[in-house]
């Protein structure tokens, strides 16, 4: 295959909008959107602050099938307000997870896929966004007791803030090279730590710490795949059949690794972080 052929056959996932992403992952013809844009469930808070809202508040909820299994997909549109979680969008995701839990209780096994492209809470909606994120996290924890909840961070926004904790709570986490995962975004860290320690404009440096490849090498993500619709779907189906790494329950192990750094922790580089997380597995 020539390079041109390969390029033409390649279907980028990162370049798709949130709705197209959800459609691309679900089995052909099974995509059914709930609370779609024509229902116009929009943020009541943004217009009051002079900000243009979006008809779906940047969150797409779809029911469908994944290799024949009932599934609910929540996809965040990173292009709208940085994928930030407001009251409405957050409630849509939390509600979808809660309904999936109810389905499972009623004998209809339903798994969930979260397409996370978010800077975290929407600052304009403050506590209402934070409350929604807390509900999403509670929903993930409850649902993963019944069926897998798979988080996908494809990029290029990445997953930050309270939603990075939600990502950590998922049964499985799938990332691409474009993905980033971190509690604080680069600009926040630069502001707090100083540009000498953390330069948010240095992209290779940023990705070397919070990029998908590094997070996977550190064991904080379960699958690392190329930006390709088919590959991501294949990997997703594979994860559905695997037992969860149950990272959230291993907090003691993680705390012990971090404690090894001591109070006078040196400035780490990417390799040192990998070594720290890989521990005895090295």
């Amino acid at each position: 295959m020539t390079d041109t052929e390969r390029l033409l056959r390649h279907r980028s996932f990162v370049e798709l909008g949130a709705r197209q992403r959800a459609r691309a992952l679900l089995d052909n013809g099974t995509f059914r959107e709930l609370l779609g844009p024509f229902d116009r469930l929009m943020s009541p808070w943004l217009p009051r602050q002079g900000i243009v809202p979006q008809a779906d508040d940047g969150v797409i909820i779809a029911k469908g099938k994944l290799a024949g299994r009932a599934c609910v997909v929540a996809a965040i549109e990173g292009g709208f307000q940085g994928g930030s979680m407001g009251e409405v969008g957050g409630a849509k995701i939390a509600g979808a997870l809660e309904l999936a839990v109810e389905d499972n209780r009623n004998g209809i096994p339903t798994c969930a896929v979260l397409l996370l492209e978010t800077g975290g809470v929407r600052l304009q909606e403050a506590n209402l966004g934070l409350a929604a994120i807390a509900e999403i996290q509670a929903g993930i924890v409850e649902l993963r007791g019944h069926q897998p909840v798979i988080g996908v961070i494809a990029g290029s926004v990445g997953c930050f803030g309270g939603m990075s904790i939600a990502a950590g709570l998922c049964s499985h986490l799938l990332v691409t090279r474009e993905a980033r995962l971190g509690l604080n975004g680069p600009q926040v860290i630069e502001q707090e730590a100083g540009i000498e320690e953390y330069n948010a404009g240095d992209r290779p440096f940023i990705w070397s710490f919070s990029g998908g490849e590094q997070r996977h090498a550190c064991g904080l993500a379960d699958a690392y795949v190329a930006d390709d619709v088919e590959r991501i779907r294949e990997q997703l189906l594979q994860l559905l059949g695997q037992p969860s790494a149950n990272r959230a329950r291993q907090h003691a192990w993680y705390l012990q690794r971090l404690a090894q750094l001591g109070a006078e922790a040196p400035q780490l580089d990417a390799a040192a972080v990998r070594a720290l997380y890989q521990g005895d597995a090295q």
């Binding site: 909008g17 844009p37 024509f38 243009v52 809202p53 979006q54 008809a55 940047g58 549109e77 292009g79 709208f80 307000q81």
Partner: peptide
């Protein structure tokens, strides 16, 4: 019929027709 195109992202717009 109805359609939705675009996104409320920088330099773009969302159009809903019904």
């Amino acid at each position: 019929g109805r359609s939705l195109v675009g996104c409320v992202s920088s330099g773009d717009l969302e159009v809903l027709i019904e």
